[in-house]
Design a protein around this nucleic acid. Structure first.
Lengths: 334, 334
DNA sequence: TCGAGGGACTAGCACGCGCAAGTAGATGAG
DNA sequence: CTCATCTACTTGCGCGTGCTAGTCCCTCGA
């Protein structure tokens, strides 16, 4: 019934206390659910109700100053455009962190390195790298800025890499369709060279295990004509099926093939990776590998949280479910 | 534990003062170059030197609490992948802001909208939208969170509106090809409803000026079958050409048309917007509108700064050059 | 009757900084 | 010599929270 008072000042915990005839401390204890305090249930409810009524929002800066923790997780991203799946991961992670009262902020360091790195001004509780390990210089800078935890932990050298199983699924799928001459199409973008190489090598391993010849290596640069060259190279090498680094590369190959008069999937099968929107947009729709991005995102969040609160990290990388989605861009070899 | 003790505490302005036998206020005045204070040159130099020596970094949270300003500029980005030029412009803006003591933080609101928006926890001084105007709900939320300035300014309804000329180019292009029955395909995504509506209305205006009937309104939701419905609706309305909100929508329409046995561009022309990578990936390659964002970065920074400090905005909007890139998805009406 | 032992709170400091209001000493005008 | 003015500082409050160290009252056992 009673409307929140109209005032340009922001609502503080002291306002709640005053309006309820309580002390600031009590209000703080209730709102933070501080352990070791005995507050009557009735008072708690009154505080919650009044906070709601007044539209109270804790002042982040004040809280950070008092507690020494910012409740910020800084995710350091590489300089290349985000894969669809990575974006979804981050969204999922952000949601999970938000629930725990943390904020996820993304940051791409500048190549020039002129500006102060964002962690110096934000002083996040946790810095999480999606680019590999932090450099010693970065680690020092973060420590000085008060970053209490980093992922991967610079003190622990053992690297638990994400087991890229997607390319394995791609190759197995193509093999099951009877394709023997397979190619793997890399993205030529140097900034993602590591991940590209990893996926390529996993594809090679998978082929080896299936006693297939090593995949022909193709390279596609989005934005120029290299996809046409790649298709030409593949065809002249007798390739009947291509596993692509991701859906964009796959789509580029499909487009180039069609332009060259090569029917997809009748003459050439192409399988993508990530199940990005583009996979179901293009014609023919792409067979691809779907990643359990939600699970991965939650894992990321759990990793950051454990680092923030000093728990031990989640036991294992969840066996995220990869699924090969069969659409129209792959067909049995004839 | 693991490290030899290096004075665990962070360096504060009080440390500098103590070490120099000065008061904290003096140090503060020097470091902030506070106007209206007379400090001897010698003292200034000693303060600067000592700050440097001790590696002093102002505590952002404390400063924000005391001054009421966070010196953060929050750039709200759309949910689609950023093209390279926009990325570089953001970097440029970030650099320029850094020089002025501000930090640029990017933020992409979550589709689910479940998490608290980042501005509530960061309380930036300025929120800058790259997605069109902020919704009234967002504006209210930001005001409540203490955001002092927004770009574009929600109070100035017509000012500094980015003149969306892209749709005009699309319609003019289609008209020049002889198409009369034109449709505009919106994205159904509610997150970008404002920008979608703006482009749609610009397309409508352009059609009107060319004495064409108002474009048929189509709505496409990436990820479901709505593109097929849209194509069906367009064809039954006698439409021969579609201007799409962006390249993804355009690609989805092209895919759906092909699947329905409608030849693109022979029976249906489609023109996209943004010149995103997908535009040159799909087959047929999309005619689209390329946005030249050169210089936009520094302009953005200047815009944010003027909003932050209450100056009048920079006079000159750089004349961003829009170009219609003609590819294979549009043909003259027969 | 008294004191111990809670339950339910409150008083108040610390966090690091910005900034308004003061103050001691030097200088110059009348 | 007095007083105003200026320089070069210092004192100290307040920003909104988190949290330690109480305080007050009520109940209960002896």
């Amino acid at each position: 019934m009673s409307r929140p008072e109209i005032s340009n000042r922001r609502v503080t915990a002291a306002d709640i206390a005053r309006s309820l005839g309580l002390s600031r401390a009590t209000v703080g204890f209730v709102l933070n659910e501080t352990p070791g305090q005995t507050i009557s249930e009735q008072t708690k409810q009154r505080v919650f109700a009044e906070a709601e009524r007044l539209g109270y929002r804790p002042h982040t800066a004040a809280r950070a100053l008092a507690s020494g923790r910012t409740r910020i997780v800084l995710v350091v991203l590489p300089d290349w455009p985000l894969d669809f799946s990575l974006r979804r991961n981050l969204e999922e992670a952000s949601l999970a962190l938000d629930e725990a009262g943390y904020s996820l902020i993304t940051y791409t360091p500048h190549p020039t390195g002129q500006a102060r790195p964002l962690w110096e001004t934000l002083a996040p509780d946790v810095a999480l790298s999606m680019v590999g390990r932090f450099s010693q210089q970065q680690v020092d800078s973060m420590r000085r800025a008060g970053v209490r935890a980093m992922v991967p932990d610079p003190d622990q050298v053992d690297a638990d890499e994400y087991p890229e199983e997607g390319p394995v699924l791609q190759v197995q799928h193509l093999a099951r369709l009877g394709h023997c001459r397979i190619a793997f199409a890399e993205s030529a973008d140097p900034r993602i060279a590591d991940l590209v190489a990893l996926r390529h090598s996993r594809a090679r391993q998978a082929a080896e295990e299936l006693l297939l010849p090593a995949p022909v290596a193709l390279s596609v640069n989005l934005g120029d004509d290299s996809a046409s060259d790649a298709v030409r190279k593949a065809v002249s090498a007798g390739v009947t099926a291509i596993a692509a680094y991701n859906d964009e590369v796959a789509a580029a190959l499909v487009g180039a093939a069609l332009r060259a008069g090569i029917a997809v999937p009748q003459q050439l099968s192409v399988v993508g990776h990530d199940d990005a929107p583009i996979a179901s947009i293009v014609e023919p729709q792409l067979s691809t590998v779907r990643i359990d991005t939600a699970g991965l995102g939650r894992y990321l969040a759990a990793l950051a949280l454990s680092a923030a609160e000093g728990h031990s990290p989640p036991a294992t990388i969840p066996q995220t479910q990869l699924v090969l989605v069969e659409r129209a861009s792959t067909l049995p070899h004839t």
